[in-house]
């Protein structure tokens, strides 16, 4: 496990604040994060109509950690700020074949989410922004470490598709193999470089 400093945007103060990128989130950290997230989610759900409930509202990060945390193929990352986990990422380093370039291997983002209090989907006054961008940058870095030259892939939830397009990921359409028929996105090496460096 390692920790390094990153920044995220405190939307209420409208300024960048220092956060911690946790590589190798522990089961204890996942348990605490899940407790904070589910408590917050309950409050938001009571205030919004059922049609607007997030489709990933039932994700249980503690259960995910128990299932995947013991396996060398998976890695948990988290962005921590103000003593709370602001976002988490579960990455698979069991490499897959890229659908854009079939000769190349790719790292897959199994699950990625921000804390409920950071989602415009749930509140008009989210607390932090940039959590998703930091986690995508983390996935790209991990892809480099695995020899995949920044290539990453994931299945985006419908209301998050815009975010992944803004990262420069290519929309490869609905994946018929996905149990919920979500759209599959891939980031090429070139797009990863542009995302990280702007050129």
């Amino acid at each position: 496990m390692s920790r390094s400093a990153v920044k995220i945007l405190n939307l209420r103060a409208n300024r960048l604040v220092t956060a911690t990128l946790v590589s190798g989130v522990s089961i204890r950290e996942a348990q605490i994060a899940q407790m904070h997230w589910s408590r917050a989610l309950q409050k938001y759900l009571e205030a919004i109509p059922k049609e607007k409930w997030p489709e990933h509202g039932g994700w249980d990060w503690e259960a995910k950690h128990k299932k995947y945390g013991r396996l060398a193929a998976y890695r948990f990352y988290g962005v921590e700020c103000a003593n709370k986990m602001q976002g988490m990422l579960l990455l698979s380093t069991l490499l897959r074949t890229s659908r854009i370039d079939k000769k190349k291997q790719i790292v897959y983002g199994v699950y990625l989410a921000s804390a409920p209090w950071n989602l415009r989907l749930l509140t008009d006054a989210p607390e932090y922004s940039l959590v998703g961008s930091v986690l995508v940058a983390t996935a790209i870095q991990a892809s480099h470490d695995e020899g995949c030259e920044g290539r990453i892939s994931l299945h985006a939830l419908e209301q998050s598709e815009g975010f992944y397009k803004s990262c420069g990921m290519k929309d490869l359409g609905v994946d018929e193999e996905h149990e919920n028929r979500l759209k599959y996105f891939e980031m090429t090496t070139k797009a990863a470089k542009i995302f990280l460096t702007g050129k």
Binding site: L71, A72, A73, T93
Partner: peptide, 9 residues
């Protein structure tokens, strides 16, 4: 490394 990760899984 891939072989080991897959074998463990």
């Amino acid at each position: 490394r891939q072989a080991l990760r897959l074998y463990q899984l």
